[in-house]
Design a protein around this nucleic acid. Structure first.
Length: 442
RNA sequence: UCCUCAGUAGCUCAAUGGUAGAGCAUUCGGCUGUUAACCGAAGGGUUGUAGGUUCGAGUCCUACCUGAGGAGCCA
């Protein structure tokens, strides 16, 4: 069966098939599907870069080779050698006439590959997440995610930001204290998994001017919705000498760049996902801007029972964004519901200079950020009001002692952004191995 | 933590309180251009668990377990 060993041909990836028309090449991959029709077989090979329909004709192959192909099982690992040919009837436009096949591992029929070409339920698919990643749709989503991550890095790298990553073990909370994962450190010490790199970003921004961090973030929220993971990836830029207006402009440019890159580089994947790209093409500046005050008025006029002073619910975000064709910016939230470090509006201290970006089509908040307090006394006051201990924040307070300046930034959740761009029902498909309230396997 | 819904073949789902069934997957057979191929046949079940009502329970009742969706909170 191992003809390729004695007659080695150049190995190619399916994505490069168009460069090898007429050549004899080998493609290492896995059997995606197999269609049989008497004396002709059509194994569909996948190699991670694409799909290739191969053709095996009984009359043109040794009987043993033909029988081997005919009885191949789904997801068996094989190296197929043959000649590439342009073929309109094949998906992808190219086809391979099989000369020989080398089977590395044949999936046994008594334990066949569980994910068949028909429908499956979400529980079954999540239990088989390690295999589900091989399917076309999951492949497309994770390629879009990769493009988003690349675009995020390129955007900040090309805009004068320095990447300075923040610690994952942290001694204290940035956001609320009830949503921290506690970890046993040495000598009875407790540390927590980071909820945000933002406090550290403020230190690095004072050192480099403009910085960003990008890494995993953890929230022990008992949230069981399509928008929540307990472990997610967040990119957080921070700028010295910046106001809320600078933050808003940065967020707007950033979101447009990321969406533009996916449209430019990942058309095929969006097509697999049946994403209406017109909705993404509408993502151009300027984004509509609304104050929290006006948002509350708008919501009340459109059926929400929200009262001034409380945060938006999931349905509130949907009501706000459903009439928009692009993301919207909402700013100046009640100071009382925002984190202690948020800068109050000097002319209206009851509202804070925070801004959220809400994605359209009901996807909700993808960015949260704003201007931070830079006045030492005000920061001390706010720490006290939030009943936070001073000692763990000593270093943070120091930043207001040594050349304090107005500064701000934001955080964007990668999974929510990818879910929106891909048009997915749930964020769980946007990360290879999602961690959720009741799921930590596989 | 609370609310709602669902657990039946490996998977997706049917079955008025009255003999547990189909499609896909698997195996065997047929077919030289298939596109989640198609046609024929076979094997495959402690109906989530424990109780209860009933002549009789997959179906009704109670508790529990598991999962999904949502609320609150959030990116």
């Amino acid at each position: 069966m191992s003809l390729t060993v004695s007659t080695p041909s150049p190995r190619i990836r399916i994505a490069d098939a168009s460069l090898h028309v007429g050549e004899t090449v080998s493609i290492p991959g896995w059997l995606y599907n197999l269609r049989k029709s008497g004396k002709i077989v059509f194994p569909i090979l996948r190699d991670g870069s694409g799909m290739m329909q191969c053709v095996g004709v009984k009359a043109e192959l040794p009987e043993e080779t033909f029988e081997t192909i005919k009885h191949l099982t789904q997801e068996s690992s094989v190296v197929i050698t043959g000649v590439i040919r342009a073929e309109e009837r094949a998906v992808g436009g190219y086809e391979m006439d099989i000369h020989s096949i080398d089977v590395l591992q044949r999936v046994p029929e008594e334990q066949p590959y569980p994910i068949t070409p028909k429908d499956h339920g979400i529980e079954f698919l999540m239990d088989n997440r390690h295999l589900w990643l091989r399917s076309r749709r999951q492949h497309a989503i994770l390629r879009v995610r990769h493009e988003v991550v690349r675009a995020v890095r390129d955007f900040f790298d090309n805009d004068g930001f320095t990447l300075v990553d923040c610690p994952i073990f942290t001694p204290a909370s940035c956001e609320g204290t009830t949503t921290l994962f506690e970890v046993d450190y040495f000598e009875d010490e407790k540390v927590y998994l980071t909820q945000s790199g933002q406090l550290y970003n403020e230190a690095t921004a004072m050192a480099f001017g403009k910085t960003y961090c990008f890494g995993p973030t953890f929230r022990a929220e008992k949230s069981k919705t399509r928008r929540h993971l307990t472990e997610f990836w967040m990119v957080e830029p921070e700028m010295a000498y910046a106001t809320i207006e600078d933050v808003k402009q940065l967020a707007e440019r950033f979101v447009c760049y990321v969406v533009g890159r996916v449209l430019e580089q990942r058309r095929e994947e969006l097509k697999v996902l049946e994403r209406d790209t017109a909705k993404l093409e509408a993502c151009l500046p300027p984004f509509p801007r609304m104050s929290y005050d006006d948002a509350v008025t708008f919501l009340q006029a459109n059926g929400s029972d929200i009262q001034w002073g409380s945060d938006f619910g999931g349905t509130d975000e949907t009501i706000l964004t459903q009439s928009q064709d692009r993301p919207m910016l909402v700013d100046r939230f009640p100071t009382a519901i925002k984190a202690f470090y948020m800068q109050p509006d000097p002319s209206r201290p009851e509202v804070a200079l925070g801004v959220d970006v809400l994605a359209p089509e009901g996807y909700g908040e993808i960015i949260g950020g704003g201007e931070r307090i830079h006045d030492l006394n005000l920061l001390m006051e706010r720490l006290h009001e939030h009943q936070l201990p001073q000692e763990p924040f000593d270093w943070y307070i120091d930043l207001r002692r040594y050349g304090s300046v107005p500064h701000g930034g934001f955080g964007m959740g990668i999974e929510r952004c990818v879910a929106w761009i891909c048009g997915l029902e749930h964020v769980r498909e946007t990360i290879a191995f999602p961690r959720m309230l009741y799921r930590t396997k596989p």
